[in-house]
């Protein structure tokens, strides 16, 4: 195994990292403001992605416009979940909210085939196929380094979006309100913060980020199905646990770690040991076991702060 090859494998995970990071940030946003985990994250993202794909593939709308439309669908879904469902429910506790999002998963899974028919396609293929610039080739360390253009675009968009969000969280009035609500909703309300609005915005933002992540993931050549974001969603949840829910940047770090470690583990199959080739089959098992061990040693996550419990 040469150095350029190893680097290329790592770069191949770039899209995966970006998508997981965005999804993990979205999960944290919802978790911190509503203390629940949104299981519909992936399916809402898939729904928005279907709209983007339809606008792009059927009507020839430019991708970025279609993306905005898809994200708007996500925003509407998020607002609907928080304002219409959660606020009209009778004393819905966090576990109840989880079950509601699970019910929404069923509704969306059933609804997507009704609205879009044939559930499987690769819509963004034409975006890069046939173009010379689909891959960027660089000479590096005596070999050739091939990087896909899509991965670089994804990296740029993700870094820009996350940087903007972190700056807003840190310095804007909205960010202060979100952090206050996340720390203690009741006290935040006493301080004059409209925590209902903050929660609703968080849901909208989380779902929009999910759609962005889904479009990036589909653009990498993955067929869109109602459940194509499930793996990403599970990884995003685990990334949140790995990084620690108590900060906003922890989950993003966790999201970068999981695909990274997965690639590093897959390097093991090139070791000159007999039976090493079989490791690729056990790749995800090894990654998840490592993750478990880390969490057992540090239950608050890598970057989490210990939470004092009141009795």
């Amino acid at each position: 195994m040469t150095l350029p090859f190893a680097l290329m494998m790592l770069l191949g995970q770039l899209v995966n990292m970006c998508v997981t990071a965005l999804a993990a940030f979205a999960v944290t946003m919802v978790f911190r403001t509503s203390t629940t985990t949104n299981f519909a994250q992936g399916s809402v993202a898939a729904l928005g992605c279907y709209y983007t794909a339809e606008l792009f593939g059927k009507y020839g709308v430019p991708v970025y416009l279609g993306l905005i439309a898809g994200m708007l669908v996500g925003v509407l879904c998020g607002l609907f979940i928080d304002i219409v469902i959660f606020r009209n429910g009778k004393s819905v506790n966090p576990v109840g909210k989880q079950i509601i999002t699970m019910g929404l998963v069923s509704i969306i899974f059933g609804g997507i085939p009704l609205r879009f028919g044939n559930p499987e396609r690769v819509p963004f293929e034409s975006l890069y196929r046939g173009k010379e610039a689909a891959n960027i080739i660089v000479d590096f360390a005596g070999g050739k380094l091939v990087v896909s253009r899509h991965a670089l675009i994804c990296l740029g968009v993700t870094v820009a979006v996350l940087a903007a969000l972190f700056l807003l969280l840190k310095f804007s009035k909205w960010g202060l309100a979100v952090r206050a609500t996340a720390s203690n909703e009741f006290t935040a309300e006493l301080m004059g913060i409209n925590s209902h609005a903050i929660t609703a915005i968080s849901w909208a933002l989380a779902c929009a980020l999910g759609v962005l992540a889904a479009v990036m993931y589909a653009g990498n050549g993955t067929a869109i199905t109602a459940s194509f974001m499930t793996t990403i969603q599970v990884n995003a949840f685990l990334a949140c646990i790995l990084g620690g829910f108590s900060t906003f940047y922890g989950p993003v770090v966790g999201a970068v770690c999981i695909p990274l470690v997965s690639t590093l583990v897959s390097f093991l199959q090139y070791l000159p040991i007999e039976g090493a080739a079989a490791i690729s089959r056990w790749n995800m098992v090894i990654v998840y076991v490592l993750l478990m061990i880390v969490i057992l040693i540090k239950p608050q996550g890598l970057l989490g702060k210990p939470v004092a419990k009141k009795v």
Partner: peptide, 12 residues
């Protein structure tokens, strides 16, 4: 899915 949502919403 709808049944699940309605039950949890109105009968915690």
């Amino acid at each position: 899915g709808l049944l699940i949502v309605v039950v949890v919403m109105f009968f915690p």
